[in-house]
């Protein structure tokens, strides 16, 4: 009996030690995922209930105190088949943006969007310095040779940005607990600005969801230059 009781106690002691070790191993991991960041799922839906793709989504802290890491790599706005690709590019303020030219014809890219105005002289290939946008805002792009070309760069004071996919869904990973404002932007959206921002408090839970239901009809998606309607020559 004595031996057996002792054995049981010993076993129980060992189990406790293992359990403690397990807790010691896993609790900090649980803590790390649940306390420091939270995934925010953002959905953009038009007034007909259809999901809207290619909408910029970004988060800024409500108090405006954003610790912006220095941009680590350049962003790219290419020109392919006499179109800006992508049609909408989102970058953090201060990110150098490269404008390579994948076409065989020259382009002459400009923007008059204050205060991010710039002009890249006529060029082919990648023989010019990237353009850095130091101010947040929408930069609309044109080509002075091909008037039909239209593209946008959205410059944001945030490192938390993305675009909605074809299902109208975007995911941001945000610190917790914090108070954020989630913003969306697209050249197709005509709703007033105040409907394009939503406050969000990230709590100690793994995911939260923000849905933007647009009230106004979207403008049609940008249609690229087509050979069927090539009116630019004359």
């Amino acid at each position: 009996m004595t031996i057996s009781r002792l054995s049981i106690l010993r076993i129980g002691d060992q189990l406790c030690r293992i359990a403690a070790r397990m807790i010691g191993l896993f609790v900090p991991l649980l803590f790390a995922t649940s306390v420091f960041s939270s995934d925010v799922d953002v959905f953009v839906v038009d007034r007909d209930g259809q999901r809207v793709a290619d909408v910029a989504v970004y988060a800024v802290k409500l108090d405006g105190q954003m610790d912006l890491p220095a941009p680590t790599k350049n962003a790219v706005m290419d020109q392919i088949d006499r179109q800006f690709v992508p049609h909408l590019l989102v970058v953090q303020t201060g990110t150098p943006v490269e404008f390579p030219n994948s076409d065989t014809v020259a382009h002459h890219v400009y923007s008059f969007s204050h205060p991010n105005k710039f002009v890249l002289p006529m060029y082919k290939g990648e023989q010019h310095a990237p353009v850095t946008f130091d101010h947040s805002g929408v930069v609309s792009l044109g080509c002075n040779i091909h008037d039909h070309m239209l593209g946008y760069i959205l410059v944001v004071d945030s490192a938390a940005f993305t675009k909605t996919d074809e299902n109208g869904h975007a995911s941001l990973s945000l610190e917790v607990p914090e108070e954020y404002v989630i913003n969306i932007w697209s050249p197709r959206i005509r709703d007033r600005d105040e409907f394009l921002s939503k406050a969000l408090v990230t709590l100690d839970k793994p995911t939260s969801e923000v849905i933007f239901s647009l009230a106004k009809k979207l403008t049609p998606p940008h249609r690229g230059h087509s050979d069927r309607m090539s009116w630019s020559d004359y």
């Binding site: 609309s140 039909h148 239209l150 946008y152 050249p187 005509r190 049609p220 940008h222």
Partner: peptide, 13 residues
């Protein structure tokens, strides 16, 4: 003189 298309939501010139 032409008006850039984004004036009208990107669709009209």
């Amino acid at each position: 003189v032409s008006r850039r298309p984004e004036t009208f939501g990107g669709a009209h010139t």
